[in-house]
């Protein structure tokens, strides 16, 4: 793994006044992330890195996502009566995949010499482990429908976060190839959760669509919805900076390529904004 070279790259960017010995920088970043544990990666990382789009930050944020998913399915499978016998294999499979993805990312970071933060305690009620805080996500482990709605949003978030970071791991070709193979697995998970919800009467397609019924969240939890599907409705895509693709000129009846209006936006998964994704993941730690 060559992720470590990223830190050389980071050290050479204008944010660091002088090239920092990479081991020292790794230690610094690792400590910063660890220090921010109670609130996820939170503010400490924001001040050290500014954005979450460096290779190191990308790998760390994806690890945090996978840990969140592992925790969700671990807790759900442990909740008596939540998941039916028939559907347990589905969630056991998703849990197995997420566990493998987390292990892969953790290994990549460790191979690069990074100090990997310990796994935080996840609280899917949105109360941050404090019973005095308001419940943002009620009945997640007592109502299958409420659980599925949260699972859908977290899986969609996963697809979109991998989309955001897929080409950010540019200094590590091996990790990039792995991430490009993880992304479609996340896409299949998201699609399946959506199938399950549809089979239970929810108005939802296998891909984010403007025709999906909105999952209503309290204002304090709205950031999850924004992270999961915000921007999916866009019909504007770019072929280069500032130059949009003229879909209307070639998706036409005369070219035998007419489509239903919502399909254009559905045809592409969008990248999550990484800061929004972080805020959403921080709802659960």
């Amino acid at each position: 793994m060559k992720l470590i070279s990223v830190l050389d790259h980071l050290a050479a960017t204008p944010t660091a006044p002088e090239p920092t010995p990479r081991r020292a920088l790794l230690t610094k970043l690792g400590r910063a992330a660890a220090a921010a544990l109670p609130l996820g990666l939170g503010t400490a990382q924001a001040t050290t890195a500014g954005t979450l789009d460096s290779s190191f930050d990308a790998a760390l944020q994806l690890l945090q996502l996978e840990r969140l998913q592992v925790a969700l399915y671990t807790q759900a499978l442990a909740a008596a009566g939540l998941i039916t016998t028939a559907q347990r294999p589905d969630f056991e499979r998703m849990l197995a995949h997420q566990t493998q993805h987390a292990a892969l990312l953790q290994q990549a970071l460790q191979n690069a010499g990074a100090i990997v933060p310990t796994v935080p305690t996840f609280d899917f009620s949105g109360r941050h482990g404090q019973s005095s805080n308001p419940v943002l996500f009620p009945n997640v482990f007592t109502s299958f429908d409420d659980f599925l709605a949260l699972a859908q949003q977290i899986e969609d978030l996963g697809v979109r976060l991998y989309t955001a970071h897929a080409f950010n791991l540019v200094y590590d070709a091996v990790l990039t190839r792995s991430v490009l193979r993880i992304l479609p697995v996340e896409s299949q998970h998201a699609s399946h959760v959506r199938s399950l919800r549809r089979s239970r009467g929810a108005v939802v397609q296998n891909w984010p669509s403007e025709e999906d019924a909105v999952i209503t969240r309290p204002a304090a939890a709205q950031v999850l919805t924004t992270a999961a599907t915000g921007g999916e409705e866009t019909t504007i895509q770019y072929q280069s900076a500032g130059v949009s693709i003229p879909f209307s000129t070639f998706l036409t009846i005369s070219k035998g390529a007419a489509i239903h209006d919502p399909a254009l936006a559905e045809s592409f998964d969008e990248a999550a904004n990484t800061a929004t994704a972080q805020a959403a993941m921080d709802l659960f730690v």
Partner: peptide, 27 residues
């Protein structure tokens, strides 16, 4: 990038079709 975003939806489609043919056969 456009192909990345399209490929992700293709994978969603594959899972949708798999689940229609054999429920739970996604991924």
């Amino acid at each position: 990038l456009m192909m990345l975003k399209a490929g992700s939806v293709v994978s969603r489609q594959a899972a949708a079709i798999r689940d229609l043919l054999t429920p739970g056969s996604f991924a």
